[in-house]
């Protein structure tokens, strides 16, 4: 990884997949703001906001508020994209990667992505599939100037979501304004073999032990 964009006091390496572990809405908003404002202010950067239905709109409205600008022209010219997750987790991964590719194809030098962890959201991917999705993001970013920020609300999510999702699938963790390289991060293949296929809640009838 190489040094990347400075956001507030943080320099996000590129590419990187960052978990913002926060406690409640105020912390989430502050963390996302620090991450997105430098991109919003940089004409060579593009932004992709995503999540369950309505989430991207909410992030966009917050960003407008935080920057104090009308960002609809950026939306219109495709510098900011609003996306949505998908019930099919593979399609969700495609949506993310296709959006990033599209923004680079449009000539932007950097892409910053933000969205909340969609853990056990009704009508969405099962938690284990969501974890798979998270684990596949970083390998897909190789060689591009992209940073993905996933927000994990420790006040709302179960401990397994934080442990298996935020802690084990992200190359970096941002907590209380401090960005750290994540020593507990597991590369995707190892994560699949050692974590995902052994998740305790999976229903495995017919297993031979």
């Amino acid at each position: 990884m190489t040094p990347g964009t400075t956001a507030g006091a943080q320099t996000f390496p590129v590419p990187s997949h960052v978990a913002l572990v926060h406690n409640g809405e105020t912390e989430r908003r502050a963390g996302v703001r620090e991450f997105l404002i430098p991109a919003a202010d940089d004409p060579n950067a593009a932004i992709y906001l995503c999540g369950p239905p309505g989430e991207a709109r909410r992030l966009f409205a917050s960003l407008e508020e935080d920057t104090g600008r009308d960002l609809h022209p950026d939306l219109k010219r495709g510098r900011i994209l609003l996306g949505q997750g998908d019930r099919d987790v593979d399609q969700q991964l495609r949506n993310l990667l296709d959006a990033i590719r599209l923004l680079f194809d449009r000539g932007f030098a950097r892409v910053r992505v933000a969205g909340p962890a969609a853990w056990d959201v009704p009508g969405y991917a099962a938690p284990e599939d969501f974890l798979w999705y998270e684990s596949r993001i970083l390998p897909a970013l190789e060689g591009v100037d992209a940073v993905i920020l996933c927000t994990y609300d420790a006040a709302q999510l179960p401990a397994v979501a934080i442990q298996y999702g935020a802690v084990e699938t992200h190359s970096h963790i941002l907590i209380s304004g401090v960005l750290s390289e994540n020593a507990a991060f597991l590369p995707a293949e190892r994560y699949l073999r050692e974590r995902l296929v052994n998740l305790s809640w999976l229903n495995l009838p017919g297993a031979e032990g």
Binding site: A126, E128, L202, L204, G206, G209
Partner: peptide
């Protein structure tokens, strides 16, 4: 491929992609 994946998940009676994969590992 999407069709095959859906079919695999359905036929194995799994609720998710990963559950199907976990069964594959668990059963050897």
């Amino acid at each position: 491929v999407r069709g095959h994946v859906r079919s695999v998940i359905e036929k194995l009676g799994a609720r998710s992609r990963l559950e199907a994969v976990a069964r594959a590992y668990r059963n050897g």
